[in-house]
Design a protein around this nucleic acid. Structure first.
Lengths: 148, 148
DNA sequence: TTGACAATGAGACTCATTCTCATTTATACT
DNA sequence: AGTATAAATGAGAATGAGTCTCATTGTCAA
C-alpha cells in the first residue's frame, strides 16, 4: 500500500486525504502490527500535534479504516482494519505489547453461533465482540517484544 | 452474604476488614451485577473518599475477591469474583451498561482448548482472557437499563 | 485496653485526552 | 491553474480520571 493507494482509500471512504491521515496510515501499514497511541506519538512527535493524532485516530476509526481497542493497562491500541473481519489479541504483561493472533475457522464459527444465540436470548443487536488473551512471556522469540 | 460473612471472607484472604472494604463488598453483593467505579462513586460519594474507593478496588482485586475490566468507553467495571472462574460481558452501547452473560459448557471448553493451543504456539504463559460482546438494545426488557 | 502498624480522607498532583480558536490545507468550481 | 470555502490542523489551555502524600484514624493481636 503506497501513498497514492492510501489517498485513494481515504477518498473512497469519503474523507479528505490530509497529511496527518495519510502519514498515520503509512506508519500503520509500515509496522503491520498494533501500536498504542502513546507509543506512536512518542516516536513521531515531530510529525503530528498530539491533538491531531487523537483526532485522526478517531476519524479513521469512524471511517472504518482502522480499529482501536484498549489493553488492561488502559492504553489505546490501533491497527489497520483487516478485510476479513477483525483480529483478536494477545497482550503480553511482561513486555506490555499486543500481538495479533490467528484463530482457527472452527473457533470463529463458534463465536458466530454464540453471537446469534445471545442476540436472541437478550433481544439485543450485537454489533461487535472482542476476545483477548493476557499472557506473560519470558523474553522468548515469539513475543512481540523480540520483533524489533 | 451478610456483614459478618463479608468480614470473614476478607480475613480468610488475609486482609483487614476495614469499613470501606466491607461497605464496598456489601454494595456489590447487594446489586449482584457489574458496576463502574464512577457510577459507584456517584451514588456513594458521602460514604467513601474517591482515593479510598480506587485503593480498595485495587486491594480487593489483588486479593482475588473482586474482578475488574474496562468497557470500550474506558470505564472500569467491578464485580464480585465468581467461584466458577469469571464472567463474560455484554456491553450495551445504548444504555452504557454491562450485563453478565452465561456461556454454555461447550463454548467454555473451546476457549480452554484455544488457550492451550496459543500458549504452545506463542510459547507464552496465558494468565487470563476476556470475551466481550458489544450490543445495542432498544430499551427492551432484558437490557440491564431496565433492571432498576 | 493498648501499641504498632495498616488504612483512610482530603486534597494536591499528574498526565492522558479533549477542547478552543487562529491559521492552514484540501477540494470543488471557475 | 487560481480561488473560495469549508474542513482540518497545531499549539496550548482546559478537563477529569486516577494516583499520591501525609496527617489522622481504625484494626487487631497480644
Amino acid at each position: 500500500m503506497d501513498r497514492s493507494q492510501v489517498r485513494m482509500s481515504l477518498k473512497s471512504k469519503g474523507i479528505a486525504a490530509t497529511k496527518p491521515r495519510v502519514l498515520l496510515l503509512e506508519i500503520l501499514w509500515g509496522i503491520n502490527a498494533p501500536i498504542s497511541v502513546q507509543q506512536l506519538y512518542q516516536s513521531n512527535s515531530e510529525k503530528f500535534a498530539l491533538s491531531t493524532l487523537y483526532r485522526v485516530v478517531n476519524d479513521l476509526a469512524t471511517a472504518d479504516i482502522i480499529e482501536t481497542f484498549t489493553s488492561p493497562d488502559q492504553n489505546i491500541w490501533i491497527e489497520i482494519k483487516a478485510e476479513d473481519g477483525h483480529h483478536h489479541h494477545l497482550y503480553c504483561e511482561s513486555c506490555e505489547t499486543v500481538i495479533d493472533i490467528e484463530m482457527d475457522e472452527e473457533f470463529e464459527a463458534s463465536i458466530s453461533d454464540l453471537r446469534d444465540q445471545l442476540s436472541k436470548k437478550y433481544n439485543i443487536t450485537i454489533v461487535d465482540h472482542s476476545f483477548e488473551l493476557y499472557g506473560k512471556c519470558s523474553g522468548n522469540v515469539h513475543c512481540a517484544c523480540n520483533l524489533d
